[in-house]
């Protein structure tokens, strides 16, 4: 169960109106926030819908980002592949492949789930960040700069065309996932989250379903990361490690992990507020965010945005 379609349409419609209301600076910033919103959606899918608490979701965001940078900068050349859009597709495939590899290792090979999975994915994210920081091909701690921008519009200084393309991609992915979750696959993911043992005793492979959800989440995160690097024109180790993994977890928990739209809006909202409050409060901003996180988890465990949405859905469902 996700947010009503009319509400999601209103949200994306409202975001589409931003460039005409705000200046180029905020349009450019919001383009990045929309991608972080998409990143949050990927974790909401994996954690909130499939019940897989991944504490290293930035691994896939960063993998997509670095793949995009390597391919579009020509550091890695793939015969027959040129241009930003094919590179984007390959970056998504590579991020999904990383998720598939880890999924096989974690779910099939080691049979890890629950809190242990959170710890292992956290450790993997830390390790991956250290690997990136020490790998000359990836620019070590400096990262990779001057990544080519997406070939959108004629004026490279106008952020609006890129913003609209990114928003359209985010909307397409969002509505695609909502449709998928309304299908048989979505019902099975809910069953997987609620009672994996029961699902196994009905004849379903819990491991296969977990891997499928993990790969899908990895692909969406990889897409967001690849688009982010092409928009920011810079790939840095911070995109792949622990800090961003923890940040997206906080966004999703605050918004509400079981509702994709809530996770999407929470990421954007927190990043906007962060822009203002970090100027006013400096480093104290992080303390304020942490306090808000603790209060939310204790008092509104379903999330600040998802709770009213779930209540609304419940009322609509009960209405004659």
């Amino acid at each position: 169960m996700d947010a009503p379609v009319w509400l999601a349409l209103a949200v994306f419609g409202g975001l589409a109106a931003v460039p005409s209301l705000a200046g180029d600076y905020w349009t450019g910033q919001l383009a990045r926030y929309v991608l972080f919103g998409l990143f949050a959606v990927s974790l909401a899918l994996v954690w909130g819908r499939a019940g897989i608490l991944c504490f290293g979701q930035a691994m896939f965001f960063g993998a997509g980002g670095y793949a995009m940078a390597l391919l579009t900068l020509g550091i890695v050349e793939v015969p027959g592949l040129s241009g930003a859009w094919p590179a984007l597709a390959l970056a998504v495939v590579l991020a999904a492949a990383l998720a598939l590899l880890l999924g096989f290792f974690l779910f099939w090979g080691a049979g890890i789930s629950g809190a242990y999975l959170a710890v292992v994915t956290l450790a993997l994210a830390v390790i991956l960040e250290q690997v990136v920081r020490g790998w000359p091909l990836l620019g070590e701690s400096t990262g990779l700069s001057s990544v080519p921008a997406l070939p959108v519009g004629d004026n490279p200084w106008d952020p609006k065309p890129t913003y609209y393309v990114l928003l359209a991609i985010a909307a397409a992915v969002y509505f695609g996932l909502v449709a998928l979750l309304a299908s048989r696959f979505g019902v099975l993911l809910t069953a997987l989250r609620t009672h994996p043992q029961r699902l196994a005793y009905l004849g379903y492979s819990v491991v296969a379903l977990r891997i499928a959800a993990f790969v899908l989440g990895g692909a969406v995160a990889g897409l967001a990361g690849a688009l982010f690097v092409a928009t920011d024109r810079f790939a840095s180790p911070s995109l792949i490690g622990f800090a961003l993994s923890a940040e997206v977890l906080i966004w999703v928990a605050l918004g509400g992990r079981s509702v994709l739209l809530a996770a999407f809006l929470a990421a954007i909202g927190i990043l906007i507020v962060q822009g203002f409050l970090s100027e006013a409060l400096g480093e104290w901003w992080l303390l304020a965010l942490g306090a808000l996180f603790m209060v939310s988890v204790a008092l509104v465990p379903n999330g600040l945005l998802a709770t009213p949405l779930l209540w609304l859905q419940s009322r609509l469902r009960r209405a004659p």
């Binding site: 019902v187 809910t190 069953a191 609620t194 009672h195 043992q197 029961r198």
Partner: peptide, 10 residues
């Protein structure tokens, strides 16, 4: 199962 094992959220 002895304890009813159903999908509560469905």
């Amino acid at each position: 199962f002895q304890v009813a094992s159903v999908f509560d959220d469905l």
